Amino acid sequence: MSKYTTGEIAKLCGVSVRTVQYYDERGILIPSELSEGGRRLYSEDDYKKLKIICFLRDAGISIKSIGELLSESNPSSVISVLLEKQEQLLQNEVKERQEQLAMLEGIKKALKGIENFSVESIGDIAYAMENKKKMKQLHAVLLITGIPLNIIQWVSIILWITTGIQWQDNNNENNLRASKVGQG
């Protein structure tokens, strides 16, 4: 069975010696044995474990989470939660980056329309972009409230055409009856 020094296992996995030492300090990659001179020696299983650690780190999973996964007696129950958590984190990060990219594109577009650029121009652009965002939100609110009102209006028109009933006429009729009863 092969034994690897810290330098050898680090080189095989494409990480620094310090990284391997750090994983040892964190308790997620403890060497199988120590040489007579006190050097760390890693087994083939340790090598495979380091490859898994590196793979999970490349996926963005934290050292703490990897440590929890490796110490778990039933890792299948933990891995799906870890992956879901990491996926959500990355999706949020992508969304933030897309918003930043859109902001940069908006700034570039606005700068094309400015002849005499000054630092204050950036403030003006920021103000315009913020108001544009607020206008979009207002537009959404108006749509959300306007569509149901429009539907009610069309239903009223269709009822009036098909049955001849007008809500306003019913109200007027009730008022006339009430006034006749009061006179009688």
Results as ranks from 00 to 15, higher is better:
S43V: 03
N150P: 00
G37E: 12
I122Q: 09
S43F: 04
C54G: 10
K132R: 11
L41A: 02
Y4I: 02
G113E: 15
S118V: 07
S121H: 05
N92R: 10
Q183M: 04
E84D: 11
L104W: 10
F117W: 04
I52H: 08
V78M: 03
L69E: 00
I53H: 03
A178R: 13
Q91N: 09
E120P: 00
L50A: 11
S76N: 15
N116R: 11
V141G: 01
Q91I: 13
I147E: 05
L142K: 10
L90I: 03
G182W: 08
G123D: 13
E68R: 08
Q168T: 09
F55H: 09
S80Q: 01
W154C: 08
I152W: 11
K112A: 14
K51H: 00
L142H: 04
A102Q: 13
Y42S: 02
K132Y: 06
K133P: 01
N171C: 12
G164A: 10
K136Q: 15
D169N: 08
F117T: 03
I9C: 10
P31H: 05
E36Y: 12
K112H: 15
I144G: 04
P75M: 14
S179H: 12
W154N: 12
S179C: 10
G7K: 14
M129H: 02
L176V: 07
T19I: 05
V78R: 03
L69T: 02
Y47V: 06
V17P: 01
E36A: 14
Y47L: 14
I52E: 12
G123Y: 04
G164Q: 11
A10K: 15
R18E: 09
K51G: 02
S65G: 06
Q183F: 05
W167Q: 12
T19S: 03
V181M: 04
Q98Y: 13
N174W: 08
Q100V: 04
D124G: 08
L69G: 00
K136L: 14
A178L: 11
A126Q: 01
